[in-house]
Design a binder for these strands. Structure first.
Length: 424
RNA sequence: AGAGGAGUGGCAGAGCGGUUGAAUGCAUCGGUCUUGAAAACCGACAGCCCUUUACGGGGCUCGGGGGUUCGAAUCCCUCCUCCUCUGCCA
């Protein structure tokens, strides 16, 4: 969430930024927050003054009691009683304003960075980089949902039987391929200086709020109601929340973490023909990179993270393009996002395999994640994350692009991990 | 899951209704002394909110929330977490 102080001090700049998201009613959203903040401050001032008065008088009563002047103490005690009701009222409206302000701030998305193009949807994204040749497939080429049956490596029907749609069972070389990709991604991240973390895959409510899945995207997460826990939609949630409520030392920055977790998404209402097979699942595997850094470093680090992800795609010999998302296509929390898309030659479609984002201080503000700068002042940090990478669509790309009459060719970089060079 | 015990500043650890936002020790930072270092000595050292051009002033926070009281770290309720014993289990 944005800081109210920023809203107050840079109202115009923020509104100009939000306009790039094609956000309706941005000015009334922002102005209401500023108004609530003003009410909050006025009320707090009044409450504080009244408390200061009552504190002084209470101390005075203590002194009188010590001095044995019981009568004077009793008189003063009676005099205070009237203020109590006032104070109670003030405190009630203060907490009401605080709550309303928080709710209001939850509704305002992050402000897109200067470089982010304006736009309402995918058509306005900028293709900033493209790499690798689009494979020419023969007429017999199949989309991955047929290939997985042909080679019996991923089974949707078995998944339906034991769980439901969107929970595939990986079999034999299909299972091994998953493991190989996970290990490959983790090893590459480690080489790039990331520290591996293996977090819980269910989180509490506070974590959901910390990274912004709650209260907004509640319906997207599986909810374990008896214990009020949530299955994570991405490792971003547990790994970023590791740093909730922390004041880090400057020498510990930047924090670079990588983690593999399964991810769970309900994807309510978002199914259709274009999400066949591995294109969209309820459970999938992903390796995520997360960084926490000083504000002045975050855009350089965003580029570093993209370079890392692009390196992975190149090692896997997958043709990809890199998009700079426009305001309207970016996530709620992000200030700038690059998407990486792999070309799946049989579907003849680009599939999003990674999303790398700089959240600036938007998450850190909710998380109260700060550091002490050289002047000794505590300051919000910046958080970033990116998929490096999500497995299913990578698998779709490999299967479709590398199909040959003899079988599916495993990319060279992966063979040490799979132990085989062909799926047949 | 049941019974008992405990949660205080970066750490350790006092306080158990009245100038205590918190003694003391350690750690850290700055200074004096020293050729330098150590020791010794002096000083600083929680976060958040409001207010002030600034100096400063006020408020809140002793695991979270609520209550009693003129006044709560201290009493009561509730939740969370940790420890010990019993149970269960990979």
């Amino acid at each position: 969430m944005l800081q109210v102080s920023t809203l107050r001090e840079q109202r115009t700049t923020i509104l100009e930024g939000l306009a790039k998201r094609r956000l309706k009613d941005a000015d009334s959203l922002v102005d209401r927050a500023i108004e609530l903040d003003q009410l909050r401050r006025d009320t707090q001032k009044q409450a504080d003054d009244l408390k200061a008065k009552s504190n002084t008088e209470s101390k005075r009563i203590g002194e009188l009691m010590k001095a044995g002047k019981a009568e004077e103490a009793t008189a003063l005690r009676t005099a205070i009683a009237a203020d109590k009701d006032n104070l109670k009222e003030l405190e009630e409206s203060l907490s009401r304003y605080e709550e309303e302000l928080k709710q209001q701030l939850y509704k305002i998305p992050n402000v897109p960075a200067a470089k982010v193009p304006a736009g309402g949807g995918a058509d306005d994204n900028l293709n900033v980089h493209q790499h690798g040749a689009i494979p020419e497939l023969t007429a017999e080429a199949m989309p991955h949902w047929d290939l997985i049956k042909k080679y019996d490596i991923i089974d949707f029907d078995l998944g339906i039987k034991i769980t439901g749609a969107g929970f595939p069972v990986y079999k034999g070389k299909g299972a091994k391929l998953q493991r190989a990709l996970i290990s490959f991604f983790l090893d590459e991240a480690e080489k790039a200086g990331y520290r591996e973390m293996m977090p819980p895959i269910v989180v509490n409510e506070a974590s959901g709020y910390g990274t912004g899945q709650l209260p907004d995207k509640e319906g997207q997460m599986y909810h374990v109601t008896v214990d009020n826990l949530f299955l994570i939609p991405t490792a971003e949630v547990p790994i970023t929340n590791l740093y909730r409520d922390m004041i880090l030392n400057e020498e510990d920055l930047p924090v670079k973490n990588v983690g593999y977790t399964p991810c769970f998404r309900r994807e309510a209402g978002s199914w259709g023909a274009h999400v066949r097979g591995l294109n969209r699942l309820h459970q999938f595997d992903k390796v995520e990179i997360v960084q926490v850094c000083k504000p002045e470093d975050s855009y350089r680090i965003l580029d570093d993270m993209c370079t890392h992800v692009q390196g992975l795609l190149e090692k896997l010999e997958l043709p990809y393009r890199k998009l700079l998302l426009c305001g309207g296509d970016m996530g709620f929390n992000s200030a700038m996002t690059y998407d990486m898309e792999v070309y799946a030659a049989a579907q003849q479609r680009w599939l999003e395999v990674s999303s790398v984002s700089n959240f600036e201080a938007f998450q850190a503000n909710r998380l109260r994640l700060r550091y002490k700068n050289k002047e000794g002042k505590t300051q919000l940090l910046h958080t970033l994350n990116g998929s490096a990478l999500a497995l299913p669509r990578i698998v779709a790309g490999i299967l479709e692009n590398n199909q040959t009459p003899e079988g599916i060719r495993v990319p060279k970089a992966l063979i040490p991990y799979t132990g085989f060079d062909m799926i047949n």
